[in-house]
Design a protein around this nucleic acid. Structure first.
Lengths: 138, 138
DNA sequence: ACACTACTTTAGAATCATTATAAAGTAGGT
DNA sequence: ACCTACTTTATAATGATTCTAAAGTAGTGT
């Protein structure tokens, strides 16, 4: 597991102690080729299956929140019932498939440049996000 | 109250019986010049103050949900903790002020046209929404 | 290796928004 | 006035998330 060392560095570099649990979570999140979109519930289920460690829900919440704060994860709010997270923290947009509750990345180029013509004095822009909701043609 | 008749028509035309409670809610939502952004909690507080009727939370949820389904209200999800609603149901976008948890309308012209270059076969687009998060310059 | 301290994990309780339930009330047609 | 279907309501239930306080662990200094 050479990735493990990468995870340890990643954690350490941002002031998080590399604990067993955090490394297990890193493996699930970052030991993959493609972007991963998930809810806390998804992540919890995967950890139960793939990891020998029992990791409590509280730890999963704490860690995901820490990762979000360190910009290792991007949070996306689609509806009020739950939050989605994205391992792709680059600037990008999303499709949300309402038929399957699935999130799909949209590259920045896919959306084109967004030129905001309105500014609000005394405020700075933190993010500009486009969410395209789609449904099955039935 | 001539507006009351308008509310009654509005309700009736969409299959909702004009009850005392729904009319009180209509008054708060639509008896105003400007667009109104609110959470269920906001609405509940205003109703407690402005209306003589006691309206239960359940009714507020039911009615707001009915209005949303009839396209009398637009729902906006900013974060997982609660839903925002907008009496402006036209196609438009939003600023969300993270310093004050306040929602501000962005006209379509303010954002410019969004040209989606990616399509997903077999899916139809339900909505395209831009959310611009802002914060106070501190 | 040992001890110390601050950071972590954990189970479980607490909280908050939202939804469901089932009984009592009401609108609109007859 | 009467009926029936739709509404409201208080309350309980649910589900996501956060809090708590005790037990465990990492990293530092010895």
């Amino acid at each position: 597991m050479e990735n493990k060392d990468i995870f340890i560095k990643k954690l350490r570099s941002s002031g998080l102690r590399p604990t067993r649990q955090r490394i297990e979570i890193c493996k699930v999140l970052y030991d993959r080729k493609k972007t991963f979109h998930f809810t806390i519930n998804d992540l919890s289920k995967i950890l139960k299956k793939k990891s020998n460690e029992k990791i409590s829900l509280a730890t999963i919440y704490n860690t995901v929140c820490a990762f979000k704060n360190r910009n290792y994860l991007k949070e996306i709010s689609i509806n009020s019932s739950k939050s989605y997270f994205d391992t792709n923290v680059s600037n990008h947009h999303h499709f949300f498939n309402e038929s399957t509750d699935e999130l799909i990345d949209l590259k920045n180029e896919d959306v084109g440049n967004i030129k905001l013509k309105k500014k609000i004095p005394g405020k700075k822009i933190k993010s500009v996000e486009v969410l395209v909701k789609i449904q099955d043609n039935n």
